[in-house]
Amino acid sequence: MEFLNSHGTMYYELHGESDKTILLIHGFPLDSSMWKPQIPFLVKSGYSVLLLDLPGLGQSLYKRALSIDEMADEIADMLQTTNTTPCCVGGMSMGGYVALSLALRHPDCFNKLALIVTRAEADSEEAREGRYKLAEEVRQNGTKAAADIFIDKVLDVDSDPKLRDVVYSIMTKAPAAGVVAALEAMAQRPDRIATLPEIDALTLVMWAEKDKAMPPESARNMLTGIADASEARLPGGHLTNMEYPEEFNRALLRFLES
């Protein structure tokens, strides 16, 4: 399905027929297909699953680059237009940055928040410069420049080779312009630490034991800053939902039913 407005077209899918809907927002440089291991389980458990491709990624085509806050505003607009109030919004990594923005800018859009291998801190100056440098490489050489770096950030070298192939394929299909826009949006995102106490949604902070992209300290900062937050410690690395779907799904369901 497509949500059209003056900025472009956001692609989304709805799986299931329940009035209890969970919205899942993907990470970088991926798209909504990263959530395939969650769809059958959540639908069988009595939920509808709403997936979308962030602006410029997957099948979402936009006329210009959007900031993280503008992406959140687009999602809020889509939810309002489609008359959808999710029982939970879950955001993974970059999707978590968008979910945090959504929680702060549009708190009435949903009831529960799942922050999945993500962080509230802004980039350090070094990390910011790294994103800008990579964005320039993608401009010059295409999406493969980002995929070659991020595949080893999101998966261990000893991960299932078939899974690595699937993830790498998703990454390399991302439009180069969208990858550049996303890198710049992440580099320019604001620090959310001081505003975490403003989040009043029941929150689950999900972090992975071998995550090379998001340190445990980031999870602790969110657990400390958000008043009504609990944690789920998961096995594997950054793409824990794809590496260990059973453990991930059980932890998410416990939260949804709490």
Rank of each mutant, 00 (worst) to 15 (best):
Met1Glu: 05
Gly8Lys: 07
Thr9Gln: 11
Met10Ser: 00
Tyr12Gly: 02
Glu17Ala: 12
Ser18Asp: 09
Ile22Lys: 06
Ile22Pro: 01
Ile22Ala: 04
Leu23Asp: 04
Gly27Trp: 12
Gly27Phe: 12
Ser33Asp: 13
Met34Asp: 05
Met34His: 13
Pro40Val: 15
Leu42Ile: 14
Tyr47Asp: 00
Tyr47His: 04
Val49Glu: 07
Leu50Tyr: 04
Leu54Ser: 04
Leu54Asn: 09
Pro55Ser: 07
Gly56Thr: 08
Leu57Trp: 06
Gln59Met: 06
Ser60Met: 02
Leu61Ile: 11
Lys63Glu: 02
Arg64Tyr: 03
Leu66Gln: 12
Leu66Ser: 13
Leu79His: 10
Leu79Arg: 08
Thr82Trp: 15
Pro86Met: 12
Gly91His: 05
Ser93Val: 02
Gly96Leu: 09
Tyr97Arg: 03
Val98Tyr: 12
Leu100Ala: 10
Ala103Glu: 05
Asn111Leu: 08
Leu115Gly: 04
Val117Trp: 06
Arg119Ser: 15
Ser124Val: 11
Arg128Leu: 05
Gly130Ala: 07
Leu134Lys: 13
Leu134Thr: 09
Leu134Asp: 07
Ala135Pro: 01
Arg139His: 12
Gly142His: 12
Asp148Met: 09
Asp148Phe: 13
Phe150Ser: 01
Asp156Tyr: 13
Ser159Asn: 12
Asp160Ser: 11
Pro161Tyr: 15
Lys162Gly: 00
Lys173Thr: 02
Ala177Cys: 00
Val180Gly: 05
Ala182Val: 02
Ala182Tyr: 07
Ala187Arg: 05
Gln188Cys: 03
Ile193Asp: 01
Ile193Ser: 05
Pro197Cys: 07
Glu198Asn: 09
Leu204Ala: 14
Val205Glu: 01
Glu209Met: 07
Asp211Gln: 10
Met214Ala: 11
Pro215Thr: 07
Ala219Lys: 10
Arg220Met: 13
Asn221Gln: 14
Gly225Asp: 03
Ile226Met: 10
Ile226Thr: 09
Ala232Leu: 08
Pro235Val: 09
Gly237Glu: 05
His238Ser: 11
Thr240Ala: 14
Asn241Arg: 02
Glu243Phe: 11
Glu243Ala: 08
Glu243Ile: 06
Phe248Gly: 02
Asn249Gln: 08
Leu252His: 06
Leu252Glu: 03
Leu253Met: 02
Leu253Tyr: 11
Arg254Trp: 04
Glu257Asp: 09
